[in-house]
Design a protein around this nucleic acid. Structure first.
Lengths: 203, 203, 203, 203
DNA sequence: GAGTAACCGAGACGGTACGTCATGTCTTTAG
DNA sequence: CTAAAGACATGACGTACCGTCTCGGTTACTC
């Protein structure tokens, strides 16, 4: 599993961190529209070619910046479902609570808005952004739901993708439409309703 | 409620239509990121000041363009809930079906993505975009849900806003993450689950 | 002879002057190699597009800057040969003296070096630079020589172009090879030798 | 007079030739303005540091490239004046003919233009370029003229530097201003005129 | 019907940012 | 210590848009 050693001076990994930090800083200060490659380069103390050598576009850069932000700050959200004896309903509640809390942090909210902007702006980048970011969480929810169906806890006819879309989409929609941040308190309630609907009457 | 008649030559209303048409055309061809005021002006055969006289920013222009698109193409979605003897569940199903169908049209999907991009990019514009576009639909769903609660069809403790968020957010999330368009078929299923959860057991 | 009035806002002629002044300033300070469009724009308090709208390249801009410099500072050199009863030899001596004096000014010397750099660097621009700048002076010398031949003052077999090349080229060569500026004192002597060689023995 | 043997891997002299060849090739194709260190390095199959280790600047590299070009292709021009019983006039005529012929070759013309561009662009390099290239030829002409004065063949008051400037400058000026190459045929005529003027009437 | 004020197109303007290229230096591995 | 490769900070390139402005010219109300 050796790294293939290419000739020439290797890239300085420390620059990556400096650039991603700078990108996050600019993102929080100026939003996605106000982020320019030039500002990021200046804030990171780095030349523009160094940016373009590593990320081909603003969307790709922002994507990585957000990804690293979540990986370091809220790892629990990305790998929420350890094998457990808890019921699927309990697991979902725990995950959704953690997700809502995480998104309640204005810094994380800003990151998700940036990601959304990137995806909405140019569908070309949307696919890869989804694969690297949202997909993992979506799959976690889906597999949890599927476990509930298998165990008989949930109805057999549940289309799990649709339910996962609703859970994540609900939060996203709130971020987009509520400027005041103190608004995500109803999220658990949604889960109550959904779980009531999911429950297997024969269980 | 008379218009205050300002002196001087009045604005030519026909330009509005030409500009909005051009904006939609550019939007479909190049996406939100690829839309520039300059391109729109050129495509509409209009000078840039004429644009800025009427819309203060790209976000405002795109907002109006999308609004008019939906008003002319799918009026049923914006005013879905006429007073009726139908149950709330039936009304919701009808509305959601119409909404999903409308969004299934790639042209409309592109419009909603544009709106999303504008809102996510600069939270400054998000508020007014929401007020002029999404808010009406959200309120329609909310009032329908509220009627169901009042009539006893739905549980008394339902937090209607949260449910409305989930319905609309679900569709939005799918638009953002699914590049292939053949994907909105599970939407009615979500409603089945939700309605099951909403139903008042004492009814 | 009316100017054809093109639509749109007309160009501000004052900018031309500001830009050409700035170009000359930068040229004297940093030389042709050190002159960049960006520096000139900044020094003139003007945007880069304004430069490119008026001059398509560094060579063209420098050409115009030098031309205007000479037009305002040393008009006598460009139109040296008024109809006169002086002999051709006297006229040539007067013109060559004025030319040498003008080039003795370090500012003018720098301008001519810049012109030379532009022409030598990209033969593409050389043609038009020559037409607009050096050509007039060359023609003046040539016609003066031709008058001398016609009047019998000079030998009939003189190839006037070759002699004009030598006079102007001599000065140019000195500018290029002598860094110290106090060096153009031998120029009149060259003319003495040349006139001796040109003189018609039968006159 | 042994080479001082420095430690470490010795420089590969073959690279010098490859680099100079590449430089000439680029020079002929793209002109002085279009020549970049990067292009030369790539064309020579060499790293950039190897270039900078051997030549400190573009001007120095081009200077050497041109020098070697003339050393190999037209040695007669650089050492034209073997001790001989010919008169000074004959020697000058021979040298000037050879010089004009050499410059008539478009490859050589391009080299001289490149040298001129380098010198005109940055007077800083001009001095050393002159010392290494033009100076030798200038001195050859000067010493030939001086011999003619000493022998009494030329007038005693001749300022030989001025005459040498005229001969070389004449050719340079033609190269700069004549795009069409079929133009150096009048050169011998200039010498006829000059020699007529130089001739000592008392001889 | 003459003013007059806002409209219109075109396009110049000072800017900002784009994404690319070249400069000259530095850092790596290999000889 | 040299070599090739290539990353690096810097800075200029020429282009695209931004949003504002200034033109000549056009309506359409108001006096």
């Amino acid at each position: 599993m050796d790294e293939v050693r290419r000739p020439g001076r290797p890239r300085d990994a420390a620059r990556d961190e400096a650039i991603l930090d700078a990108a996050r800083e600019v993102l929080l200060r100026d939003g996605y529209a106000g982020l320019s490659m030039e500002k990021v380069a200046a804030a990171a103390g780095v030349g523009k070619p160094t940016l373009y050598r590593r990320w081909s576009s603003k969307a790709a850069l922002v994507g990585d910046a957000v990804l690293h932000s979540f990986l370091t700050a809220a790892p629990g959200i990305r790998l929420p479902l350890r094998p457990t004896t808890d019921g699927a309903a309990q697991q979902l509640t725990a995950w959704f609570g953690a997700y809502a809390t995480s998104v309640g942090d204005p810094r994380h909210a800003a990151m998700i808005l940036a990601l959304t902007a990137a995806a909405a702006e140019s569908p070309h980048d949307a696919e890869s952004l989804y694969q690297h970011h949202t997909h993992a969480q979506h799959e976690a929810v889906v597999s949890c739901l599927r476990a509930g169906v298998t165990s008989g806890e949930f109805r057999a006819d549940v289309e799990v993708e649709a339910v996962a879309d609703a859970l994540i989409g609900s939060v996203l929609y709130q971020l987009l439409t509520r400027t005041s941040s103190a608004s995500l308190h109803r999220t658990e309630h949604l889960l109550v309703i959904l779980l009531a609907g999911l429950r297997n009457p024969d269980h």
